[in-house]
Simulated assay, not measured.
Amino acid sequence: MITRLTHTTIYVLDQDSAKSFYVDKLGFQVHNDIVMGEEFEGSGQGFRWLTVSPPSQPEVVFILADCRMGHAPDSAEQIRALVAKGALGAGVLAADDCHKTYAELSERGVVFLQKPAERPYGIEAVFRDDSGNVFSLTQRR
């Protein structure tokens, strides 16, 4: 029986930039930032395992993955293109006060595609991470 989600993959265009975005702008905490495994795509080293979590939910881990991780070169390029143009909706992040969180994140440089607005399910704002992934920031009713 499946009991819970522990990890989810977010494909990013640049892991250093993504780490800075998720930590400095969103306030996430780094779990792991290590190189492991066999040589990765001719880099001379293994792949970088970079994971972060919201501070209030450390058991949910976001893998900030290089688009090449686990993919053939042609597939990796297709994923990169989709991420960069914002074609991938990465998920929904919860906020106790969407308007306040929107203001705080905007001050930190997060780019919002939609300001907080009333929806049937609550208040929602939409933003992109520095790679192009789209997130809904939602305050539930």
Rank of each mutant, 00 (worst) to 15 (best):
31 H>R: 15
101 T>K: 07
109 G>W: 10
121 Y>K: 13
27 G>W: 04
82 L>F: 05
101 T>H: 04
139 Q>C: 07
20 S>W: 05
113 L>R: 11
61 V>H: 08
22 Y>D: 03
11 Y>A: 13
12 V>R: 00
141 R>Y: 11
115 K>P: 11
136 S>D: 12
67 C>Y: 10
29 Q>I: 15
75 S>G: 09
48 R>V: 13
131 S>N: 02
137 L>T: 03
27 G>E: 10
45 Q>M: 10
62 F>R: 00
28 F>A: 02
2 I>V: 00
63 I>K: 09
15 Q>D: 03
80 R>W: 01
54 P>Y: 03
26 L>D: 04
20 S>P: 09
106 S>A: 03
66 D>H: 06
99 H>F: 14
111 V>G: 03
109 G>A: 04
10 I>Y: 06
48 R>W: 11
22 Y>A: 09
68 R>I: 09
120 P>K: 00
43 S>E: 04
49 W>P: 07
100 K>Q: 14
5 L>E: 05
35 V>A: 05
53 S>Q: 07
121 Y>I: 15
7 H>E: 15
14 D>R: 05
103 A>T: 14
2 I>G: 04
119 R>I: 08
137 L>E: 05
124 E>A: 12
89 G>L: 15
132 G>Y: 07
104 E>P: 01
18 A>R: 02
30 V>C: 08
66 D>F: 03
68 R>Y: 11
119 R>W: 12
78 Q>L: 13
71 H>Y: 14
73 P>K: 07
87 A>T: 05
75 S>M: 14
47 F>G: 06
68 R>Q: 13
91 G>N: 05
31 H>D: 11
20 S>C: 08
112 F>T: 01
56 S>R: 10
4 R>T: 12
91 G>K: 04
136 S>T: 09
139 Q>W: 05
93 L>E: 06
12 V>S: 00
54 P>G: 02
67 C>H: 08
57 Q>F: 13
56 S>N: 12
64 L>S: 08
16 D>P: 07
14 D>V: 08
127 F>T: 03
15 Q>Y: 10
53 S>T: 15
128 R>P: 01
90 A>V: 08
38 E>F: 09
86 G>A: 00
102 Y>Q: 01
133 N>A: 10
110 V>K: 08
50 L>K: 05
6 T>S: 15
134 V>E: 08
12 V>D: 04
25 K>N: 10
116 P>Q: 07
62 F>T: 00
84 A>V: 02
128 R>Y: 07
98 C>E: 01
128 R>N: 06
119 R>G: 09
113 L>Y: 04
30 V>D: 09
56 S>L: 05
13 L>K: 01
127 F>A: 12
87 A>H: 01
98 C>L: 03
29 Q>Y: 15
99 H>R: 15
45 Q>T: 08
77 E>A: 12
92 V>C: 09
110 V>S: 02
36 M>K: 13
135 F>M: 08
70 G>H: 01
52 V>C: 07
12 V>Q: 02
69 M>T: 14
123 I>E: 11
1 M>N: 14
